[in-house]
Simulated assay, not measured.
Amino acid sequence: MQETEFLNLWKSLDERITENLHLNRIQAEEITRLKIKSLLSSMRPIKVFALAVGVVWIVWVDGLLVVTFGNASPFFWWSALFQVVLCKMAVGIYLYQLLLLAGTDIAEPVLETQARLARLKATTLSVTRILFLQLPAWTTFYLTPAMLRDSPLLGLMIQFLVTASAVVAAGWLFIHIREKNKDARWFRVLFSGREWDPLLKSLELLDQTRDYQGTRTS
């Protein structure tokens, strides 16, 4: 075999290998995008359920507030109002998240998908912080002026400690539920399951997709 023929054969073989690698990267990217689509789809049912339950709860509590206005204990009325306002904020966030998921197209550029998922992650943290702010309301809604007036000192002290603990816990969680604390044990306990794990896995897979694209263009 002449040198020219050998070089041509080598060049042809190299081109075939390069083409196969290119096709493999495209296939790997497509498979990764399908995995991301499946992960994001798995997040929808729990968010739809939370949205539905939240709407039913809001309608019920709003009706209760209207019916009991001027008659119920002020502790009950203001606790319920505080709780339902926070619940409405949470429902609004869940609706926004569902719109984000519905508008996410795995065929869109990786950076756009990453931006959507970043907003989804940020709002997941926000809705959790908001929901924990409800804690104090659940320690005061059952109180009445007569109960406080007639309760023994020990009962008042216990009630104060319970409510104060709820306030401190709610405030601490509201301040510390941040992405910078994602490696803390308590954070991993709170954020695990269908609302969080698929989101993190999708972001990891998007990084792989970006690597595939970078390899193809290099």
Rank of each mutant, 00 (worst) to 15 (best):
L100Q: 07
T124S: 15
Q134S: 14
E108P: 00
P145W: 08
A115C: 06
R149P: 00
D105Q: 10
R149M: 13
A137L: 08
L148V: 12
E112M: 07
A90N: 05
L117C: 05
Y96W: 13
L117P: 01
T124Y: 03
A102E: 05
F132V: 01
L99I: 05
Q97R: 08
L98P: 00
P145L: 08
A80Q: 06
W77T: 10
F132I: 01
C87S: 05
P136K: 08
L99G: 02
S79P: 00
S126F: 14
S79C: 04
L95S: 08
P109M: 09
I93C: 04
D150W: 09
R119E: 11
K121H: 14
F141G: 02
L133A: 06
L133R: 03
L133P: 00
R116S: 11
L101R: 04
T144Y: 05
K121W: 11
W138A: 13
W138N: 12
R149S: 14
T144D: 05
V85K: 01
T123F: 12
G103S: 07
F75C: 07
W77E: 08
T123R: 07
M89N: 06
V85R: 02
R116N: 08
K121T: 10
A122Q: 14
L81I: 02
G92L: 09
Y142I: 10
L125I: 15
L100D: 02
F141M: 12
L99V: 05
Y142S: 14
L95D: 01
Q97T: 02
F75A: 09
I93N: 01
G103I: 03
Y142L: 12
T123Q: 06
A115W: 07
R119L: 12
F75N: 05
L125P: 03
K88E: 11
Q97L: 03
V91G: 03
M147H: 07
T123P: 04
V127Y: 07
S73E: 09
Q97E: 14
Q83Y: 07
D105T: 05
L125V: 15
K88I: 10
A137P: 04
L148A: 11
Q83H: 08
T140D: 02
W77Y: 15
M89P: 00
I93S: 03
A80I: 00
L111I: 13
A102M: 01
A118C: 10
V85N: 00
Q114H: 10
V127R: 06
L143Q: 12
V84P: 00
K88C: 09
T139H: 11
P109H: 09
